[in-house]
Design a protein around this nucleic acid. Structure first.
Length: 188
DNA sequence: TGTATGATCGCCT
DNA sequence: GGCGATCATACAG
């Protein structure tokens, strides 16, 4: 995979992103956990149509969708599919590789495993804010690096986290055995 | 190791 | 008015 193609279903993109790396202003690491969402999915922000918050999900693929979770955390998503389908991938956890000192400072703790192991934590560590919403992922401040092919066999799937609807869809993807996951993978 | 709770805001009923 | 694509902290056992 020479580069990441966002003109695909959120499920394909979510799987392809495991093992890839994402950096914001040079700070970030290897993606070890993602979740797929789309317009047909009752758990998705896009399920009930366009609102000011989710409008970016219905626009061009390959852009960032940033939303505020529970009024306090910034969460990072990548928009995918042909434009207008309301599909996206939530980036849930990273293995930190670059800018670790800055991540520790932003998070106020040292433990490498807790820096980016969850969507809210990751957002804080990478300095994600609403200012990044709708920005292209192939331009500054973003940098994406596709995974090496030999990581393919380590991608596992399971059920998503923190949902009350569509709980049983196996749309969570993770690097099997990684110590940087937000929670252990549950079969699905 | 597990369960409860507060923080705090956009969107829905 | 209530409920989240969450997290840190405070407890109980």
């Amino acid at each position: 995979m020479a580069r990441i193609d966002f003109h695909a279903s959120s499920i394909e993109v979510a799987r392809n992103l495991i093992g890839a790396s994402v950096f914001i202003d040079g700070v970030g690491g290897r993606i070890v956990e993602t979740e797929a969402y789309d317009e047909s999915d009752p758990a998705s922000h896009s399920f009930s149509g366009v609102t000011p918050r989710n409008a970016v999900m219905f626009g061009a693929p390959g852009r960032a969708y940033v939303y505020r979770s529970y009024g306090l955390h910034w969460c990072l998503n990548f928009v995918c599919m042909p434009a207008g389908h309301g599909a996206g991938v939530l980036i849930r956890a990273l293995e930190p590789t670059r800018g670790i000192d800055l991540m520790r400072e932003r998070r106020g703790l040292d433990d490498l495993r807790l820096l980016c192991s969850g969507p809210g934590r990751l957002g804080q560590a990478l300095g994600v804010t609403h200012a990044l919403n709708a920005l292209r992922l192939d331009r500054k401040p973003f940098r994406l690096v596709p995974r090496a092919e030999d990581d393919l066999g380590r991608v596992a799937s399971g059920t998503r986290i923190g949902l009350s609807k569509a709980k049983d869809l196996p749309w969570r993807f993770a690097l099997a055995g990684s110590p940087f996951l937000s929670k252990p993978l549950r079969a699905g």
